Simulated scan of single mutants.
Amino acid sequence: MRTVAMKLHTKEQAPREGEKVAKGPEERSPAKWDPTVEGYLKFLVDSKLVYDTLERIVDEAPVSYYAEFKNTGLERSQCLAKDLEWFKEQGYSIPEPSEPGVTYANYLEELAKKDPQAFICHFYNVYFAHSAGGRMIGRKVSEKILNKKDLEFYKWDGDLSQLLQNVRVKLNKVAESWTREEKNHCLEETEKSFMYSGQILRLIFT
């Protein structure tokens, strides 16, 4: 999944592996971004809805092997709740989730029950992208509009590289039972994952 995902990055985002041509501002290097606090709050709220949805689906496990991904240490929902509370304490108004987040959450709900291979693709991309490019985005945005405030969204308990490796092992184990067609179907969903995540990322500039 990583190889397919990296090809969907731009050269600016991933100089060695990116192949996509940058179109929107969210596909350029975060160093060149011009974010706003209001837009960033929209991004955090919609991101929380997506993580809430992923973590609830995994917890309920409508497909038995989803339970393998409970309590991985990568969960972000509670961290985002703390961050949004911090913004509230600073006097900011917390918006309701907007269309990009609601649309993505609803899509994940549909996939979880009827298309587990596609759901796993989204699970992988949401968590792993945040642990890599997401951290860089958080750092650059914080430098520009939050006086370098370290949000909880970008902190993990324990060794992040080990947490990611543990999840990779579980993902590979689950995929062992899939047919070649099911594996291909999982990989083919990567572009949709990037599309939905990109729509949420774009909120930072609104």
Rank of each mutant, 00 (worst) to 15 (best):
Y127I: 02
A118I: 06
Q117K: 12
Y104N: 01
A112W: 00
M136W: 11
S131E: 11
I137W: 00
I137N: 01
Q117Y: 14
I137Y: 00
H122A: 13
Y127T: 02
K140Q: 07
N106E: 01
G138E: 05
A129H: 02
G134R: 01
A105K: 01
Y127N: 09
S142H: 09
K140R: 11
G138T: 08
N147S: 15
I120A: 06
K148A: 15
F123Y: 12
H130R: 11
I120W: 06
K113F: 08
K148E: 15
K149M: 14
S142M: 10
F128Y: 10
Y124D: 07
A112Y: 01
K114H: 12
K140M: 06
G134Y: 05
A112H: 03
N147D: 15
I137V: 06
N106L: 02
V126I: 13
K114R: 12
I145A: 07
Y107Q: 10
E143I: 05
K149A: 13
E110T: 07
K140C: 03
I145K: 07
K140H: 07
L111G: 10
V141M: 03
N125S: 07
Y127R: 03
Y127Q: 05
V126W: 11
Y124S: 05
A105Q: 00
E109K: 10
H122Y: 15
G133Y: 03
D115G: 07
K140V: 03
Y127G: 04
R135P: 05
N106H: 02
E143P: 02
E109Y: 05
V141K: 00
G133T: 03
R139I: 14
F123P: 00
R135D: 08
E110H: 02
G133C: 04
G133W: 04
I145R: 04
Y107I: 11
G133H: 04
K140I: 03
Y104A: 00
V126H: 12
G134F: 04
I145S: 05
A132H: 15
D115A: 11
F119L: 07
K144T: 06
L108D: 12
P116E: 15
A112L: 06
L108Y: 09
F119H: 04
L146S: 08
F128I: 11
N106K: 02
D115N: 13
Q117M: 14
K114V: 12
R135M: 14
I145V: 12
I145Y: 04
